[in-house]
Every structure is written in C-alpha cells, then in structure tokens.
C-alpha cells in the first residue's frame, strides 16, 4: 500500500471518530489534537488504521509522530517491514 493510501485511511478514520470533520480537507500537517481529537479518539484512530493495515506492532513504535503526515509515514515504514 502506498503512503498516500495510508494517509487517506487515517483521514477517513478521523472523520468516523470525529463526525464534525466531515468535509474537512486533510493535510499532512494536520495534528489530530488540533482537529479536536482527545487521547481516546487518537488511540481509536490509530487502532482503526492498524486494523485496516492488518499491522501487528507495539504502539510504542508509533510514538513521536507529530501530525497525520508523520503518522502515515511511520505506519508506511512499518507496513513495509511486515
């Protein structure tokens, strides 16, 4: 799967968790916190994305991503190594 596809999955899951974002045009620099996601929402978005990618990696390896673009990047790297 391409990095852009993973970005789209994150955007779709973010919209599902925060329906108020419907119509929002997601950018790689978007930060989940600034989009209104609390800690539970963020955990949920990550879990839903890992499920879509069938990824089995420790969540700690996803720490450090500062925005959606970086999250897509790290997930892309992990998905390549599975």
């Amino acid at each position: 799967m391409k990095k852009e596809d993973i970005f789209e999955i994150i955007a779709r899951n973010t919209c599902e968790v925060i329906p108020e974002l419907e119509g929002h045009v997601f950018k790689p620099s978007d930060r989940l916190t600034e989009l209104g996601a609390n800690s539970v929402d963020r955990a949920e978005i990550v879990a839903m994305t890992m499920e879509a990618l069938s990824l089995q990696i420790p969540r700690v390896e996803l720490f450090g991503a500062k925005n959606i673009g970086e999250l897509a990047e790290v997930l892309y790297e992990k998905s390549k190594s599975v």
Partner: peptide
C-alpha cells in the same frame, strides 16, 4: 484471533 487490535474505547 487479533486481540492486539481491540478498539481502545472498549477499555471504557
């Protein structure tokens, strides 16, 4: 069969 993917909200 994939317990690592359980939704976090289930914890609440």
């Amino acid at each position: 069969d994939r317990a690592h993917l359980v939704r976090p909200t289930y914890g609440i």
